[in-house]
Design a protein around this nucleic acid. Structure first.
Lengths: 216, 216, 216, 216
DNA sequence: GATGAATGAGCCTTCATTCAT
DNA sequence: GATGAATGAAGGCTCATTCAT
């Protein structure tokens, strides 16, 4: 007995609106990708919206229809990428491994993610440590990631795995050395393969945070 | 019989010129100090030359008489501060101590210098790791410091004091963790006293670079 | 013997075209009504074609299919309303009453029409006396109305009913005080009922134009 | 015996600042004059700031140094001219004449002022009766003038000189017929000499407001 | 035919730089 | 030399109009 023909999609009640939302989503991603390119190549003020327009092969109007302004395009990239990383970190933590394994997995996550998103990496390297200069805003993706890391370090310190230091400092340090490691990779021409890059980083991580680290 | 026209003053052949040079030098320093202030408070594009003019209590004309443009004011600060640091590093190296002592002395130098020049520190934190994005130019102050550090690490590795890694990587790492350490200090309100700040950093340095580091 | 192919309907030979014309006419009216709304609420440059589209619940394409541009939509409203008023004025004149009665009837017509078309009224009040600034174009609806009024005043002056002044000036004056009267009505919240509004205006009209007006 | 050389000026304490203020004032006037020209020729949205810049033979920067934006340039003209008229009206009222004489003097003031400032007149004619559409804001120059006129009408009505009507309505009417009168003058080519223009207007004013007006 | 997303010319505004005083 | 007012090129953004679906 034949089943009824399956509905092709299930676009919530208003197919027109759903289609529009889908298209917008695609465009949005497209623009963000183009903008990431542009912001990777030039600092914020040298990056022109025209550049993004050209890169995305979309008109100014299309861009401004989707984003309220240049500033928000930049912010959206940061938030988007940040959220992706946040999800990966959450997934790692959900695995409920020991503190060392967790930190190593997080470190791996970062290296892999930024290795695979070199435009975002470059854009990030420009921003530098500007986070230290603005007052911490809660409900900021970076802040949330920071909290998660801090939690892992807290447990690790308590367990005697990590060196006894302010866990927030260690969390900041992790993010920082991650950036340095990748900055070095970028500067040396991005030649080192991902696995090697990661292994080198993990060694640095162990050395930096483990109470009894193997000297390598 | 006419006497020869009298030379106006003695110093360095052209006293008028010498006086001018002296005054210019004072103005130059004054402008750089004001600009440092401004660039510490805002990113490059938000910092207006007017702001510098106001801060320095000097006219736009005076500024442009001494510097060809905004970009060069920024560059001059970096270069100036860089040179000061370079001299300090050179002095340390000239002491001809062992690699560990030398690296610790350099690290101390950095922390002290940046602790004592918080405007430059903040300005620096904004720049971030942008150095990784531009092709290395020789005859760049930062590059020169990097070379010196690399040299120290080379000797330290050979001597078995430091972990066996690419000395240039270690040099980059040193500069990087220095930045992170200070960024953390800034973010936590610059409350930690200088000596404590330095000691904490030295512990991090030993952990990071020593082959057989004491676990702290 | 074959009958001639039956005409589907009567109107002008091409029923398809006739249907189209009819639909277009309906749309045209609909758009003009919406535009009137919008132009009543905002000055020309603040009124967006999008606003009209939204108000009319018609796509941009539909609007531009019927009107060549924003400017022409505005002009069409003016012309359309002007033509309606022109017809009413013609009808009044066709009644062949005395000059005073005619002017009073025309005045009544204006008040009634604009009272009943408050959007057009508001739109009109925005335009103000811009007519004074552009060179008079013949074959302009406003001009035609002006001519008719002028004619009535001419006859009234000759008959000794109206004050002896340039009839074109009087015609302009009539239109002007009409606007003022209604502007006052709008500003005071459009509360005064139509009949009262008209009676007040007629008193003003008599005072303004009658040679021997009753002092009220 | 020689007198001491007289001080050239007495610029309040800070001659530099005083000079600056003086120059700014001159420029401000100059820009407003140019803008008046431009706004007289085109509606607000067709008038470009560039046009004003060209007309004033001043750079964009100079304009924006003195005015925050296009909107405010427009508003400044209205306010400036309004204030001048307000002062004239106040002076008239200060003469403490009878209501009729006062109203006639005010009417004369208007005609003279607008006759002598034809750019402002044209600019004004474009604005039309838009005042009826926005909610009355107190502390608006136009509103203040309106109040003064209303006061005169109140007294005149009480004295039995003017027709018994809402004094605010009469005040609005006065301003309105003034505009119409001048609009007619503009449309007929601004040929009528000022005195004639005024006399014609005064006749209209008497006819419109006097309880027992001479029929002219 | 109807739609509304896409376009891009154009304008307001800013600010690095210049130059008359 | 010092000043700071004047300049005008350049960029973010809007919205009338078009056109692929």
């Amino acid at each position: 007995m034949a089943a009824p023909p399956p509905k092709k999609k299930a676009p919530s009640a208003h197919p027109r609106a759903a289609a529009r939302a889908a298209r917008e989503s695609v465009y949005r991603e497209h623009i963000l990708a183009a903008a990431e390119h542009v912001f990777a190549a030039k600092p914020f003020d040298e990056a022109k919206v025209q550049d993004i327009s050209r890169e995305a092969e979309l008109s100014m109007g299309s861009i401004y229809g989707l984003f309220p302004g240049k500033e928000q395009i930049f912010a959206s990239i940061t938030e988007q990428r940040g959220n992706e990383i946040l999800e990966l970190v959450r997934a790692v933590i959900a695995r409920n491994q020991g503190p060392l394994e967790t930190i190593e997995a997080i470190a791996t996550t970062y290296i892999h993610y930024l290795h695979d998103h070199p435009h975002f990496l470059r854009m990030n390297l420009r921003t530098g440590a500007a986070w230290a200069l603005e007052p911490r805003t809660a409900h900021n993706v970076a802040e949330e990631i920071h909290e998660l890391q801090t939690g892992v370090f807290e447990r690790g310190i308590e367990a005697g795995v990590f060196i006894d230091d302010d866990p927030r400092y260690l969390a900041t340090l992790l993010t920082g050395i991650d950036q340095i490691h990748l900055a070095h990779w970028v500067q040396t021409g991005m030649k080192q393969p991902r696995d090697e890059l990661r292994e080198d980083f993990l060694r640095l991580v162990r050395r930096t945070f483990l109470r009894n680290s193997p000297r390598n």
